[in-house]
């Protein structure tokens, strides 16, 4: 039973992203601001730190592929980005301590990195047509704020849950 919890949690978070995306964009401080939920990535990041890196890579690859096929229709971007960012995260975390706050801040930093990468890619293929400054004001700041809200509310419960699962797993 415990084996099923993580995939189900992953699927629920995967679906919740597109539901939260319907709130966006909002008008705030005289600008249209897009809120891009990146909950799935934060979940995978927590998995990589508090569960097993290998599981995180597999989840990143699978959910990234589903994300590409179902939502964007351009296969490869998230499928490649999720595992790559997990790799970067684990590499950085080797040098600093694995406090939840540190992991959270690292997650936000990596989301910013991912947003920039996706923006650059979309500029390249002509889907995006805004300059970098508009990208910052319209998307990046609001997205980071939105996702830090998610972290504030759910990072600790998720961490302890994942930790418990790992203990249960070790005892088996």
């Amino acid at each position: 039973m415990t084996r099923l919890i993580l995939p189900i949690l992953g699927i629920v978070i995967f679906y919740s992203e597109s539901i939260f995306a319907t709130f966006s964009p909002i008008e705030a401080y005289g600008e249209t601001r897009f809120l891009v939920p990146r909950f799935l990535f934060l979940f995978i990041l927590l998995l990589s730190v508090y569960y097993k890196p290998k599981t995180a890579y597999i989840y990143g690859f699978t959910f990234g592929l589903l994300y590409d096929v179902f939502f964007t229709g351009i296969i490869g971007i998230y499928m490649f980005l999720f595992p790559l960012l997990v790799y970067i995260a684990l590499y950085i975390l080797r040098f600093i301590n694995q406090n939840l706050i540190v992991v959270g801040l690292l997650g936000l930093f990596l989301i910013a990195l991912m947003e920039c990468a996706v923006y650059q890619f979309n500029m390249l293929i002509g889907v995006a047509g805004i300059d970098f400054k508009t990208f910052l004001t319209q998307r990046l700041y609001s997205t980071l704020l939105f996702n830090s809200l998610f972290l504030l509310l759910l990072a600790y419960p998720l961490k302890s849950w994942i930790g418990n699962l790992q203990h249960a797993h070790l005892e088996d």
Binding site: A21, Y67, F71, G73, I74, V118, V127
Partner: peptide, 9 residues
């Protein structure tokens, strides 16, 4: 049923 969460496309 869904909107593309990354909102580029």
């Amino acid at each position: 049923i869904a909107r593309n969460p990354d909102q580029w496309q």
